[in-house]
Design a protein around this nucleic acid. Structure first.
Lengths: 155, 155
DNA sequence: CCTTGCGGTTTCAACTTGCAACCAATATGT
DNA sequence: ACATATTGGTTGCAAGTTGAAACCGCAAGG
């Protein structure tokens, strides 16, 4: 118990996010939150997971500032779980996952939900990586590099 | 044992990818693979996880077609693990996670590794979502929608 | 030979997961 | 007033998962 919340500075820029999210369920909760779900029961019905697990995951997401609880929007005496700014920052992660899923996990023609622009009703474009000058880059065109400070102390 | 490999059709476009990846370790393995790591020992040293776990995760990633084993690149009698096309498709997911991490998990000025364009040496741009017409959209501007076929059968 | 390095598998204790039962607070019917 | 349902949890417990450490097999080096 009393899990650490502050960032473990030994973790890298990919591991810290994963640690904060917690597990797969948490990411599905966040996805549902983007779809407008707010209530404990809504999440449970949507995901079909055990209540104790949902309870723990929601608490963890709140602890990490990804969700926050708000008193209630309708009259009911319960609380609701809504995305924080930080939580909304996860949107590209979910979109990237979804697009990867669409490309590799569905037969061509197999029906699947689509992410569409609300205004035009048309699908969202595929995510693309751009260099500073606007060129589209792939994983082959990039490297991870230490910051200047750390770099000067190594080989 | 004998885990299912074919897609569980009841899972959505976000859950299927998560299921295939397996867990957090797997994603970190894939990240290391993008950084050029190929050998069992390299992954183990980089991630510091138990050998049995690494073994299981690598096997799972191979089973799901994210990594594949190749005989050996140098003379050694061992095999190496390299990303498949499908595995390379995970790059945007990792970039999205990393960018989220950079924004919310590091103090301003705290040193962290950076993803840079190999040619220009400059950082990669922030991922952005574009509508079909090129407009930048946020989560508020999008909805998930059932495919036309399924849509006509509901409310 | 004997040892070292690599790439695992096996063993086993500790932890996590998740079903089911229970609990508490309000809402609703009679 | 009293029973009953609904919502949002917590608790108990069996089964599954994780991970540290020990072991194993093979090839190369001395």
């Amino acid at each position: 118990m009393a899990k650490r919340v502050s960032h473990n500075t030994s973790m890298c820029g990919v591991a810290r996010p994963l640690d904060a999210i917690g597990d797969w369920w948490s990411l599905l909760i966040v996805r549902d939150a983007f779809d407008g779900l707010r209530r404990f029961g809504e999440f449970q019905k949507s995901l079909g997971l055990a209540k104790n697990i949902l309870s723990a995951r929601l608490r963890n997401l709140v602890t990490h500032g990804i969700l926050e609880t708000v008193p209630a929007s309708d009259g009911s005496p319960y609380q609701e779980y809504v995305l924080t700014e930080k939580g909304r920052g996860l949107f590209p992660v979910l979109v990237a996952l979804r697009q990867w899923g669409e490309e590799f996990f569905f037969e061509p023609g197999e029906p699947h939900v689509e992410l569409v622009d609300r205004k035009a009703g048309l699908p969202i474009r595929r995510l693309q990586l751009h260099a500073e000058d606007g060129r589209i880059v792939t994983s082959d065109d990039t490297v991870v590099r230490l910051p200047a400070a750390a770099r000067s102390a190594s080989s």
